[in-house]
Amino acid sequence: MPSPDDPDRPRPAGAAAADEARLIERLVRRDEAAFNALVRTYERRVFALTARMMGSRAEAEDLAQEVFVQVFKTIGAFRGESKLSTWIYRIAINLSKNRSKYLRVRHTAQQEQLESLEERGPVAQRSGASMSPIERPDDLATGRQLENIVQAAILALEPGFRECLVLRDIEDLSYEEIGAITALPEGTVKSRIHRARAQLKELVERALGESIR
């Protein structure tokens, strides 16, 4: 049975909009109880989204907390042109993209450092430095392995494609909602999802060594 705080709980559109307007009013007044309720309502969805975007539980948790800090800081700037959930998702997506970019740059810098060390001498070779992922024995169960393969393939997509695919195929949002979150026209959203699926298919099939049916 859906909980009373569940944002997915079916409610008449007018009543839901009025509830949301009241909540926003309280949030703008910096009502801490209202903010706590907001975090409780959305924390799981935001964590799930950041986890799929980042592929790391620690990064996802850190980012999810940062999303709500941003919500608290900038709620006064929320103009109500979209649903509150859409606005929160937009913050989550933007922070995820920024963090991915930062991590990619840092990773590239580390990779370059590592390569220069390898060029200098055999120390790095002897230490067994390697960038390839190490499979843990408990990950070898087929279901878990498939999940890891698909998650890794999603992380390998371009961030712009990844966000559209995650919002559509995992979060189950409509094209219109995705357009509102990503600030992209609906046609672009559809095209990115289509191309993201094609890339994902290729990556997963390469990893599995068989075609997806």
Partner: peptide, 27 residues
């Protein structure tokens, strides 16, 4: 087929159950 694979393998239900307590960290 790709959509089904993604939905099947990366269901948010399991992930949401493992979700940490975000509120205390945010506060």
């Amino acid at each position: 087929a790709v959509r089904d694979l993604v939905r099947r393998t990366l269901s948010n239900d399991a992930l949401a159950k493992e979700a940490p307590d975000i509120l205390r960290g945010v506060q």
